[in-house]
């Protein structure tokens, strides 16, 4: 028989694994853990507390993400799930893993090129963004605001395709 502590550890790991199957509703190629949206998991008997952080203050996907987390966990036997918002530290694209960045690229979204520690990342100066389709670096920004709060609109000067760029924040 497992010790209570080990049970808690095993169940916490199980919750993280379930959350890795919850896709981001706006960028379904990434799950909510890879996005860095899930910040904490606490298991206490049948009760699970999940802490999530919004990518942008006005991200309209947050309610859907909270509902999806509750639904997935309850389908897997966790009856009492509460989701709370954690604002600090503020979400940053630095939390996207190398694997997540590669998935974005394959999905057709150029991943953030810099870390936010570089000043140029936010001001946008001297930034080279690689086209996710033809790998050309001859690209230009069309607009700093795109189809969702977290993306900018770019265009490739070689293959001429417009594409989304996941902007640094």
């Amino acid at each position: 028989m497992m010790q209570p502590e080990q049970t808690i550890l095993a169940e916490t790991a199980a919750v993280w694994n379930i959350l890795r199957r919850v896709p981001d509703p706006e960028i379904p190629v990434l799950n909510v853990v890879e996005m860095g949206i899930v910040r904490s998991v606490e298991v206490n008997g049948n009760n699970v507390h999940v802490g999530i952080t919004p990518t942008y203050s006005g991200c309209p996907a947050m309610d859907v993400i909270g509902d999806e987390i509750k639904r997935s966990l309850s389908q897997n036997g966790f009856a009492e799930v509460s989701v709370k918002y954690i604002l600090s530290p503020a979400w940053t694209t630095d939390w996207l893993t190398a694997e997540a960045r590669e998935k974005l690229r394959q999905y057709g979204i150029a991943p953030p090129e810099h870390t936010t520690a570089e000043k140029a990342a936010l001001s946008g100066e001297g930034k080279t963004v690689t086209c996710p389709r033809c790998k050309s670096t001859h690209t230009h920004m069309v607009s700093n605001f795109g189809s969702t709060a977290c993306k900018a609109l770019w265009q490739c000067d070689d293959c001429k395709e417009p594409f989304d760029y996941f902007k640094c924040i």
């Binding site: 919004p54 942008y56 203050s57 006005g58 991200c59 309209p60 604002l87 069309v142 607009s143 700093n144 605001f145 795109g146 189809s147 709060a149 609109l153």
Partner: peptide, 20 residues
């Protein structure tokens, strides 16, 4: 069109900040 998206995005950020 790009400006329509930009102003709507900025509006969305503002409303998100207001909610918090």
């Amino acid at each position: 069109l790009e400006e329509d998206l930009a102003l709507a995005n900025i509006s969305l950020d503002c409303i998100g900040q207001a909610r918090l």
